[in-house]
Design a protein around this nucleic acid. Structure first.
Lengths: 205, 205
DNA sequence: GACAGAACTATACTTTGGTATAGTTGCCTA
DNA sequence: TAGGCAACTATACCAAAGTATAGTTCTGTC
């Protein structure tokens, strides 16, 4: 019987998925509410076959949590799960060695199949999760942002100044101003604070 | 046997919660992926006892979706469910006549109890989900803000300029700058964007 | 090979944001 | 009634943000 460890800070989501998996197939599912708890649990009993990590969860720190888990338990397969992550995050997760990426928009039956697929040694990635083109990117206006503009917006969301952003991205301050201006125009807002607030509200970062 | 209609655009969340409810208790659960689908389904068979709506879901448009559902089917109880909504949204939902508010951080067993509670005619609101008018400890620094500074911070959180804030509060722009400066100092941040982000993160507005 | 889009830089400018200092008013309390 | 505090105003100054225009480089596409 495959051992699965599901880590998600939403109790409701976690418990129901766990219960579903146990009733529907031959899985043994254990759960944790954050990354630390998950790793601690695994140190006790190293017989976990698949670790499923929620992307937004205490301790994750973006994709660092994924890397930490992989380094600590190289033998265990790790899948990232998220309800809001975009294609970029999903791709990076796979590049960072995740064995699978599970959007929460997945159908329940598909989840079971995906888990079996990963457990049999394959790497799972939902094929319809944002093709190379940019047609169905995240809600509306954000889709039209170029990659640099997206990076700029991300820094905006930490409240950084143009100068700091320039340093972080390794470009000139004027260029940052350009990107910021474009972001404001594309999002239809009138200053950086509104841009940051909007992005946060849409759960982009 | 109570009839429940669960509307959530995340297939995985929806299906597992539905499956969980059906196995764990005597519920009949039907599902929909968005508001339109849910309303359409209810028009066919008007025997739904409880409608559970995800706050972030196509067609919801904030709390308008809730109002639409209530107007269309006054006899049906409606609960709002959300994984990210803050206290403000939750309170407004209840003010708008929701029979319950279900945070996704709820434990699975609690969900069942909440549903039974609502079905028996009560209105459910998780008690630990931030009380309404409580002055609260406001986690640290916010406590030290004077009332004007608090008002200023509130406007900051909509991304307004000093000039706009001055107009809204009926004072001079210089005075607003004074308040803003004090707010930044008291919160220990270096610009208005960070102040707004921090306040939002602490769920103050 | 022409063309379009992105990312980038430069110069120049206006507006907004943030700091500093100094002073007035009204309220509350020791 | 003196002192402290919150709120407010004024002037002034510098830094940061945002706009406008123009041009370079690179990449990928028709």
């Amino acid at each position: 019987m495959p051992n699965i460890l599901l880590a998600d800070d939403h109790d409701l989501v976690r418990d129901t998925i766990a219960a579903y998996l146990e009733t529907v197939d031959d899985f043994k599912v254990q759960t944790a509410a954050n990354l630390e708890e998950a790793l601690e649990l695994m140190r006790g009993l190293d017989s976990i076959d698949l670790l499923i990590l929620d992307y937004h969860m205490p301790g994750m720190d973006g994709l660092n949590g994924l890397s930490r888990a992989r380094q600590a338990f190289p033998a265990t397969k790790v899948a990232l799960m998220s309800g809001v992550a975009n294609r970029e995050v999903a791709n990076k997760a796979m590049e960072n060695g995740a064995n699978g990426f599970i959007p929460k928009s997945l159908k329940a039956v598909s989840l079971v199949n995906a888990i079996k697929f990963v457990l049999s040694g394959e790497r799972y990635f939902p094929f319809d999760f944002g093709q190379a083109d940019e047609p169905v990117e995240s809600s509306g206006f954000f889709a039209t942002l170029s990659s640099r503009e997206m990076q700029t917006l991300e820094q905006l969301c930490i409240g950084l100044s143009n100068k700091e952003i320039a340093r972080n991205l390794g470009i000139q301050e004027v260029t940052v101003k350009l990107h910021v201006k474009n972001v404001l125009a594309k999002l239809g807002v009138s200053n950086r604070t509104q841009a940051a607030l909007l992005a946060k509200e849409k759960q982009l970062f």
